[in-house]
Amino acid sequence: MTVRSEASGRDRDFLVGLARAFAGAVIFALPMLMTMEMWFIGFYVEPLRLLLLLVLLVPLLTGLAYFSGFKQTSGLLEEVVDSFVAVAVAAIMSVVVLALFRIVTPDMPAREIVGKLALQIFAGSIGAMLAQDQMGGQSDMKDEQRKRRASYPAVLLMMAAGALFLGLNVAPTEEMVLLSYKMDPWRELALALLSIVSMHAFVFAVEFPGAPEVRPGTAFWSLFFRYTVVGYALVLAISWYLLWTFGRTDGTGYEEIASATIVLGFPCAIGAAAARLVL
């Protein structure tokens, strides 16, 4: 009797977690599900780049599960399993929504369908993973988990996830490159500086709830270089990677790639900074 109710309780927990994951996947991916470029990119993106994106997805999700520390996991295997659950949730969500929109129909070539879905799965599964963790509440977080969460690699991974979150929403659109054509280098430099200042201000100066506690006596430069500058470098790397994945860098001069990286780096930077507060 008790064994059965325990088992059904665990099932219920899993189903609630699954429902949260679906909610997270939809929230995260909805802007992309309804963006025209995401459908087009699905069929002209280079297959190897798409593959690389999906290969990077699992370690990213596993890292998020490990570092977010909301769930009491008993080992790495469980986090890997969680990652694949998130991928499955995102896949089902994308199929349903894109089929409803008639963006994916059964008579399309497989390559086109897979391309369209793969991009959405990437975005959706991050949302699914974060929702599973985030909405679970953090009341029972242990000291060890809290420490894990505040560790340097965890902070960088959170920033990367936040950068991907906002960056993915706008990266596929033509506006990213169009803005970089319109802006002169001085404006691009100003935007880069604004990104850096915003990142630092969001996390350390504006005193949002959830901002990390800073040990008294830590020098400004220490925080600035170890977190903000490294964070912005990470943001630039992610920005460039997204542009490359979406084929925006092909046959394009270095100067232009640099500008587009800075333009897309702005939303990525805001996402990275906000992630430290929100996630």
């Binding site: 340097y152 691009e188 430099l189 170890r226 500058v229 490294v230 912005y232 470098a233 640099a258 990286t261």
Partner: peptide
């Protein structure tokens, strides 16, 4: 600090280039 140095080089490099 090593990561910070790498980050500083990347950011300074890009800003310098632009």
């Amino acid at each position: 600090w090593a990561t910070a140095a790498l980050g500083a080089v990347i950011v300074a490099g890009l800003l310098g280039y632009v």
